[in-house]
Amino acid sequence: MKDCYLGIDIGSISTKGVILDTENNIVCSSYLWTEGNPIGAVKNLLDVLKKDLPESYCIKGIGTTGSARKLIGLMVDANIVKNEITAHAIGTLSRYPDTHTILEIGGQDSKIILLENGIITDYSMNTLCAAGTGSFLSSQAKRLGIPIEEFGTLALKSKTPVKIAARCTVFAESDLIHKAQLGYEKKDIVAGLCKSIVLNYLNNVGKGKNIKGPIVFQGGVSKNRGVVKYFEEILNEKIIVDENSHLMGAIGIAILAHNHKKDKSYTLNIKDISFETKGIECNHCSNHCELLKIYKDEKLIDSWGSKCGKY
């Protein structure tokens, strides 16, 4: 039996899972949409991974990261739950040890991580507003009737991207509608959008940061070649996009699960376990906390959100 470690990265848009062997090589991986249902998505994810995992491997550790890390960590009984900044940095460093800057644009978060000799020295994240992230791009793609997968390729065809306000997506959207109604070509609008994402990112998240090469770009949006092109153009640096750039968070957390040294054997038979959450409003005091109760096999295992600590 060979040991291996599972990393799960549950983002707002997509759920990623990676199984690494002890040498940090990928044994198998999976990527699917969260669709607002992290529990269901993880169940499907584990199902896929279970089919792909050769029988000679045994999972010794599970780590969770991403915005639903706490919930899923509880569900799969993870031995480590970590935020996505650390996970992304560790994942990237395992592939590109000299990385100085990590650009990351995901579904609802965008962040920049600066490293020096393999140590995180600074980072910044978008404020709670989701301007200029993946969810904005995909909703605009839908508006324009273009599949998100073709978005980047179409943007590359444009020679004169239209100018689109880059500060706030509400303005960007009205700008975009006006430009479309004026009769600009679709490819130019798409290219303009990609450019506005880059400008928005550099104005907000990257503001005042010393962006030096080697630069690694990851997160779902890194698959968009249009955005990559404008990053290269504006930063005047080569941008590295790994073929597994969408999996970096999951890889990082799997490595952390390995390093955590709290090994135990896991099976992937989560699918049969019933796992439910119930949201209630507590009327015990005037705070009216929104409580989330978590049931595993109809047994209450945890509840969150109480301000007074009664639950």
Binding site: E84, T86, D109, E116, N117, I120, T121, M125
Partner: peptide
């Protein structure tokens, strides 16, 4: 906020180690 705070404390820890 938890994500931001937790990663901020992580970064501080790393800087200290460096």
């Amino acid at each position: 906020f938890e994500t931001r705070l937790e990663s901020f404390v992580d970064v501080i820890q790393e800087r200290k180690r460096k």
